[in-house]
Design a protein around this nucleic acid. Structure first.
Length: 839
RNA sequence: GCGGGUGUGGCGGAAUGGUAGACGCCGGGGACUUAAAAUCCCCUGAGCUUUGCUCGUGCGGGUUCGAGUCCCGCCACCCGCACCA
């Protein structure tokens, strides 16, 4: 027996080369095996792989390797979400071309991923900034245009004054740009849009079928799509105009006591000549939009003096300009029903408007006084003329029917989801393949680039000396001729939102013909993705856009796939301790030590405060570099750490002692693997049984993505095997362990496999078979309780009769002492588990 | 405010209504060693009058022979959304 250590610094690279040379992880779409497409969200090539990537990709890797062992042909690809603003920022700061910067990052990060030994099919690698990729994207965009799913319109856009670009609604957070953090301004620009709203209902309905998506993500998408059903109708105003409003509660229409319009509503704007009105509008716009501000913001209104005629009662309702009404939802105007809407209630209270009950728990409560809040709940309609006695549901239908018959309103579904503005005034993105014809007769207008002229490639010679779009000011790039009439023309200089790139990349991984974006037959073989793994931060944007593109492409006949991702898993973050000096500066966890109960800086003994355990970030100096860890412990220890302890959907706290423990376990397994003893004979039934049980349990755990549980079981089997005396069973347990850890610690497993004299790669070996007969214990431990409290345990043969167990239990000294002569009223026996004696 | 999640030892966490704390980390003790590293063994929820007993899964109730698990009512923290009519 040797006492050599496993040396990852040589072994890791050796096996990575072996897999590479053998093409072990190259997916064969012509294979007769069942297919399994395992995908992790591809990274943005920002510079370095971080621990979050390592965790994400390790989970996917274990699944991919496991599926391969179970006889699947596995597609597990990797590529680069390579367009985006950081590349342009780098270009501005470091005077490097965005493409050069991106390519260098990709090379570095690819080497890092390879160093970790991921089972990836690198033959399918691409970056979204490859002209080949974005050329196909342009073709798909033109197809969608031809199908009426792309349009152009002038619209008020969210303009980020720092990044000098347009942001989608989704990219505006609390009125600030999601990336720059600058306050977003409104500007009118001609923009390209994708008609995601055409699919609003389908995207919503489709969520129900996504059983293997987290409930949380489905809810977030549901809320984002934001379907509401109600009535749109117009009030006749005292000034002769009409005021369209939208309500989801037409049943409460008799409770309306005022109308409120947004500050930027046309009627309000029409009154802005009045100084008082103008001042009020200005005041509304100043209000903050953060959660805290909105919660505490007082409801403010300005009585316009105009009144609105109630469609049923004819009552004259005052029309207010109000700060809580939004112009961009519904019609920008509401009917105020204070009794049954909290905002309206607050407003009515402030301005002494009538608060009328029109819904009650039952008709006898019609005159019950209102409390100090609106009642939004269900009930029966009261004080509402012909609606009295109806349920809320029936009353809604009745009012909508009357409005439609009377021609003054109609039932309407309103969506929160808006069409997706994809124009970006940036260089580093997919050029939008259109040409603006400058012919003076204007007949051509905006013309699609003919497909045989794709890709429209980005110019290489660009400068980033001034903010704004380098394509716009490039000396020659935008000048071209009209494909239709041949006259002078100008290229579209907007590029596509980078979320477009990630909306179909999974299709290109599955199939990459040179002349088309993808081949439908190949798509049919691999799609949908069986397991999609990534961060929760993409719960709305990326996942909704990808679902939309898949539907849109299916809609125009590209293939027959509806949902791109059959199962979604959102993994937790990798976190680490933080230590602050109290002045806003931070120390890295390896720069501090514990001094009694306190933390101090190692360097100068200065007192340090332990902060929260948070996501690794440069600003808090709690980042751990994967390369450094791999240099110390090897890839397998890091992979093992990523899978251990924390359930994968929760955060994983990094710790130095934790990785050390993983490093120790790698060596412990290595020592055990060397104890295979061909001369050993004889059966160790208990150990063999444990090995068979672990084969089954670990498989179940991996399939449920319960990696931490699979890890715990492997620890248990390892411990039991170590303790066992040499036997044929022990050899079996050792070989079993080699297989069970091979998806998780593939380098160690290969090394041990080869050292044990096996030919071929363990990566190609199947998951071990289990013997069902060996799963059953022949002896079980029975818990013995008195009044539900544990008093003793006893060993009995599996399947012992109730009578036997009861007798054994009553024979226990501890039990008899506890019973203390009391009369036994009942004995509950759960076969093979417990006996509970009730007195 | 609405929606969702989480709450179990010093820490990460296990546990089809049936022996709470598997497994890992930390810590303590011991073996080996001149010594250290490495490795191995033992202990490790709290308390007590210690063959054993009591308490213990955020808090308060309930259902049950039996509750971390089911039901009702709270609390705390985290995440998402938001004056969405």
């Amino acid at each position: 027996m040797t006492d050599t250590r496993f040396d990852p610094s040589t072994a890791d690279g050796r096996w990575q080369s072996a897999w590479d040379a053998a093409g072990t992880f190259v997916a064969d779409s012509n294979s007769a095996k069942p297919k399994s497409y395992i995908l992790e969200m591809f990274p943005y090539p920002s510079g370095r792989i971080h621990m979050g990537h390592v965790r994400n990709y390790t989970m996917g890797d274990v699944l991919a390797r496991y599926k391969k062992m179970r006889g699947y042909e596995v597609l597990h690809p990797m590529g680069w979400d390579a367009f985006g603003m950081p590349a342009e920022n780098a270009a501005m700061e470091k005077k490097v071309h965005p493409g050069e910067w991106t390519r260098a990052n990709i090379a570095g990060m690819k080497a890092q991923l390879q160093r970790i030994g991921f089972a990836l099919d690198w033959t399918r690698e691409f970056a979204t900034c490859d002209p080949e990729y974005y050329g196909h994207e342009q073709a798909l965009f033109l197809d969608m245009f031809a199908a009426g799913l792309v349009y152009r319109r002038s619209s008020e856009v969210n303009w980020d004054p720092v990044d000098m670009t347009v942001l989608a609604n989704e990219q505006v957070i609390d009125g600030k740009g999601w990336r720059s953090g600058a306050a977003v301004e409104k500007r009118k620009l001609d923009q390209w849009f994708l008609k995601i709203t055409d699919f609003a209902q389908d995207l919503l309905s489709g969520l129900d079928a996504l059983k293997d998506w987290p409930e949380k993500v489905r809810l977030m998408q549901e809320n984002w799509i934001g379907k509401s059903q109600g009535l749109e109708f117009s009030f006749e105003l005292s000034n002769g105009e009409k005021l369209p409003v939208y309500t989801t509660r037409p049943d409460t229409i008799f409770g309306a006591s005022f109308c409120a319009i947004a500050a930027d509503h046309p009627i309000a704007q029409g009154l802005a000549g009045d100084n008082a009105v103008a001042a009020f509008i200005e005041q509304c716009k100043r209000g903050g939009t953060t959660a805290a501000e909105l919660e505490t913001a007082e409801k403010l209104g300005f009585d316009t003096g105009i009144t609105a005629r109630h469609p049923f009662t004819g009552a004259a309702l005052p029309v207010f300009i109000a700060n809580f009404v939004l112009m961009d939802y519904g019609t920008g105007a509401v009917m105020g029903v204070p009794g049954h809407d909290q905002r309206d209630f607050e407003f009515a209270t402030k301005y002494a408007l009538p608060i009328r009950r029109v819904v009650a728990s039952d008709p006898s409560q019609a005159e019950a006084p209102m409390g100090d809040a609106a009642e939004a709940g269900d009930g029966v309609i009261v004080n509402s003329g012909f609606l009295d006695g109806k349920s809320v549901e029936d009353a809604k239908a009745e009012v909508i029917a009357r409005a439609e018959n009377g021609g003054w309103g109609q039932g309407k579904t309103v969506w929160r989801l808006r069409d997706w503005g994809v124009s970006r005034q940036r260089y580093w993105g997919t050029p939008i393949p259109f040409i603006h014809c400058l012919n003076e007769n204007g007949a051509c207008g905006i013309v699609p680039v003919p497909k045989d002229q794709l890709p429209v490639t980005l110019p290489e010679d660009v400068d980033f000396e001034v903010p704004g779009n380098p394509l716009e000011r490039h000396p020659t790039w935008k000048h071209t001729t009209c494909p239709q009439c041949g006259s002078e023309a100008r290229r579209e200089t907007d590029t596509l939102d980078t979320f477009t790139n990630s909306s179909w990349y999974f299709l290109r991984f599955a199939s990459q013909p040179a002349d088309r974006p993808f081949d439908p037959d190949e798509i049919a073989k691999w799609m949908p993705v069986q397991h999609y793994i990534g961060g929760i931060e993409h719960a709305i944007l990326h996942l909704l856009y990808a679902r939309f593109w898949t539907r849109a492409l299916a809609h125009i006949g590209k293939f027959d796939v509806k949902e791109p991702f059959a199962a979604l898993f959102t993994q937790g973050m990798v976190t680490h301790e933080t230590y602050s000096l109290g002045d806003g500066s931070w120390l890295s966890p390896d720069e501090v030590r514990k001094d009694g109960a306190d933390w101090v800086a190692i360097e100068d003994g200065a007192p340090v405060m332990a902060g929260r355990v948070t996501k690794m970030s440069k600003s808090k100096k709690n980042v751990v570099d994967p390369d450094a860890i791999m240099a110390d412990y090897g890839a397998d220890a890091v992979r093992w750490f990523m899978l251990s302890d924390s359930p994968p959907e929760r955060d994983l706290p990094w710790s130095a002692s934790g990785i050390e423990g993983c490093g120790r376990f790698v060596q412990r397994l290595w020592r055990l693997f060397q104890q295979l003893d061909p001369s050993a004979t004889g059966e160790d039934k208990a150990l063999a049984r444990k090995a068979h049980q672990t084969i089954v349990a670990a498989a179940q755990d991996i399939e449920a993505l319960g990696f931490n549980k699979a890890v715990a079981r492997i620890y248990e089997l390892t411990g039991a095997t170590e303790k066992a005396a040499p036997s044929a069973s022990r050899n079996f347990a050792i070989t079993t362990l080699m297989h069970l850890v091979s998806p998780m610690m593939p380098h160690l497993a290969e090394e041990a496999w080869a050292q044990a004299g096996n030919s071929g790669l363990i990566a190609d070996a199947p998951w071990p078979e289990h013997d069902p007969a060996m799963l059953v214990e022949d002896e079980v431990t029975i818990a013995v309780q008195h009044m539900g409290k544990l008093r003793d345990t006893l060993t009995a043969p599996k399947g012992a009769s109730k009578e036997t167990l009861e007798a054994l239990a009553l024979a226990s000294e501890n039990v008899q002492r506890s019973i203390d002569g009391a009369a036994i009223r009942k004995v509950i026996v759960v076969p093979d588990r417990l006996v509970n004696i009730v007195t």
